[in-house]
Design a binder for these strands. Structure first.
Lengths: 206, 206
DNA sequence: GTCTATACTACGATAGAC
DNA sequence: GTCTATCGTAGTATAGAC
C-alpha cells in the first residue's frame, strides 16, 4: 500500500525537519512514488501531516492499549493495588520511551507539544487522553489524601519522569556518560523511575 | 546592534520552524535588515544557527547562574542542607520552565535534544553541564546510600519533572483543563514538584 | 557594514496522459 | 491510481555598489 509507505516516511521527515522543513517531493521519492500521490491520497502536504499524526496515535494506541485494558479490567479498591498498577503503567510507558521504535514517533509528538496545531488534537484525543485518565484514576486511589488538583499536579511529575527519557535523551546520554542508552542504562533508568514513583506514591499523608 | 536583533529573531524562527523550515530572508526582514547581513555577520544560515545556540546558552546561564553560584558557595555537609538546596535548585529550574520568556529558548533546546547537532554541544557545554553537575553533587549528599549510577538515574527523574513543564506543556494544559498555565496552575505544579522531590530525597535507605 | 541585484536550486500545487 | 510536465513562488548564496 503506497499510502502507508508515505505515512511511514512522513513520520520521519516531519519529525526530523518539522512541517515547513519537510519536503513532499523527498517524502514521495523515498516512498518510491511521485509527489502527486500525496495530493491524490491526502489532498496535499497539510493533509499528509494530519494523517501522520493519526497514524502515530494509532501505533502508540496499539502498543499501550493492552496494558491500559488490563488496568481498566482490574477492580482497584485499595492503595496497594492502585500503587502496583500505577508502577506497572509507568514502567510500561518508560519502556515505550526507551524502545528504539518510539524515537520516530516522539520527535513528531514533542514538536507538536511545543507549537501545537490541529495535529496535537488528534494525538491527544487519539491516545494521550486515555493514558492521562488512567494515571489520574489510579493516583486518586493510591493517594486518597489528595484533592483533584493535587492528583493532577502529581500525575504531571510522574509522567514527566517517563517523558524525559525521550524529550531529554541527548542530555541524559551526557549525564550517564554514554553515546546511546544501552541495556544497562535503560535498566538503571527504569529502576530509578520505579523507586521515585514508589516514594511519591507511598508518602504517608501528613 | 543588528547582529543581536538577528539572533533574537532567529531564536523564534529556528525554535518554531526548525533549521530547515526557517527562512533567512524572513529572519532578516523581521530584524529590519537584508538577508546578506546574515552572511556578513555569521557566514550563512548554519553559522547563524550555531550562534543562536550560544546566544540561548548565555541567556539561560545568566538566569540560572546566581542560584548555582549560591549553591557552590555553600558548604554542604549534611543531608538536610543538601536536600534543602536541591529543592531550591529544582524549584528555580521549574520557575524557569514556567516563565514565559523561556518558551522561545526551550523550543530550540528541545528540538536539539531530539536531533542533536553541533548546536547541542554548545548548549550542553554552555549551561547544561553545570546544572547537571550541581544536581548530582547535591544528590550524592542527600542520598548517601546511593552509588554513582543511582544518583545519576535519580537526577534524571528529578530533572524530568521540571523539564516536562515545557516539553509536555500542551498535554499538561489539557490535563489541568486550562488553555494556558495561569498563576494558580503554576503554583500547583511547583508545589507538586517540591512534594515529589522531597519524597524521593527523604526516602529512608532500606 | 549594509544594501540591491542576480544566479541557481527546490518548493507545493495542479493539469493531463495513461 | 500513478505518472510526467509545468507554473509560480521562495529558498540560500554571492557579487558588487555605496
Amino acid at each position: 500500500m503506497i499510502s502507508n509507505r508515505l505515512l511511514e516516511t512522513a513520520v520521519d521527515h516531519f519529525g526530523q525537519r518539522g512541517f515547513e522543513g519537510a519536503s513532499t517531493r523527498e517524502i514521495a521519492r523515498e516512498s518510491g512514488t511521485a509527489m502527486s500521490s500525496i495530493t491524490y491520497h491526502f489532498g496535499g502536504k497539510e493533509g499528509l501531516y494530519l494523517a501522520t499524526a493519526e497514524h502515530i496515535a494509532a501505533q502508540v494506541r496499539e502498543r499501550a492499549g493492552p496494558i491500559l485494558d488490563q488496568v481498566d479490567a482490574t477492580e482497584v479498591k485499595d492503595r496497594a493495588t492502585a500503587t502496583e498498577l500505577l508502577l506497572t503503567v509507568l514502567d510500561g510507558f518508560a519502556g515505550l520511551m526507551l524502545s528504539p521504535e518510539t524515537e520516530r514517533w516522539s520527535r513528531f509528538i514533542i514538536r507538536e507539544q511545543q507549537c501545537p496545531t490541529e495535529a496535537f488534537e488528534r494525538l491527544y484525543e487519539g491516545v494521550m487522553r486515555r493514558v492521562a485518565d488512567t494515571l489520574i484514576r489510579l493516583l486518586g486511589i493510591a493517594r486518597p489524601d489528595f484533592d483533584d488538583r493535587q492528583i493532577r499536579g502529581t500525575a504531571v511529575g510522574l509522567f514527566g519522569q517517563a517523558m524525559v527519557l525521550r524529550a531529554g535523551r541527548a542530555a541524559i546520554c551526557r549525564v550517564l556518560g554514554r553515546k546511546d542508552l544501552d541495556a544497562e542504562s535503560a535498566q538503571l533508568l527504569r529502576a530509578s523511575l520505579r523507586a521515585n514513583a514508589l516514594a511519591i506514591l507511598s508518602e504517608t499523608p501528613r
